[in-house]
């Protein structure tokens, strides 16, 4: 500030000041470009795109006779660990009016709370309003992890 005010070494000062501004500008430019790039390279919360197959969790996550609803893309999928120690994955969207279904352990059925629609554990509609069976998904066990994928 003082340098600008002084009049004698005006030219040199102005030039130096311009150089200072130039480096300032370059720094600003660097920040404006580097910041998005660094942010871009930072791994996002969800590690990678998972649509055709989803890791549903560890084998022990779902105990025998229990179930879990996971997100598959933007649709819910229900995974059931049956009493005979098998895993089944079915679309959790009721075929009647798009409610989300749940596993009823005592009746050994998949049940929709909205209108009492019932499906067997193969997804077949057995009672109530559902017009169609639930879509099936494939479950593969790999390294103690449950991987759900679309039926080919």
């Amino acid at each position: 500030m003082d340098q600008i005010g002084s009049n004698k070494p005006e030219k040199k000062d102005r030039r130096d000041f311009l150089k200072f501004l130039l480096s300032l500008g370059l720094t600003g430019f660097g920040v404006a470009t580097i910041y998005p790039v660094i942010s871009f390279l930072k791994p996002p919360k969800q590690a990678e795109v998972e649509v055709n197959s989803v890791v549903a969790g560890k084998l022990d996550d779902i105990k025998t006779g229990e179930s879990k609803i996971i997100r598959f893309g933007n649709k819910p999928v229900i995974i059931i660990h049956t009493e005979d120690d098998k895993f089944r994955a079915l679309s959790a969207t009721c075929t009647h009016l798009d409610c989300t279904v749940q596993y009823k352990k005592d009746e050994k059925i998949i049940w929709c709370a909205c209108h009492n629609g019932k499906y067997d554990l193969y997804g077949k509609n057995i009672s109530g309003p559902p017009p169609r069976p639930l879509d099936k998904f494939k479950v593969v066990i790999k390294n103690d992890e449950l991987i759900v994928s679309k039926e080919a």
């Binding site: 998005p36 871009f40 930072k42 996002p44 969800q46 990678e48 795109v49 649509v51 055709n52 893309g73």
Partner: peptide, 21 residues
């Protein structure tokens, strides 16, 4: 073919500044 579209959707929505890039 089964991941291209989804990965771009991922870039656009999940990756910071992905939409910009």
């Amino acid at each position: 073919s089964d991941l291209a579209y989804e990965s771009i959707r991922f870039i656009m929505s999940k990756v910071q500044f992905g939409w910009l890039i």
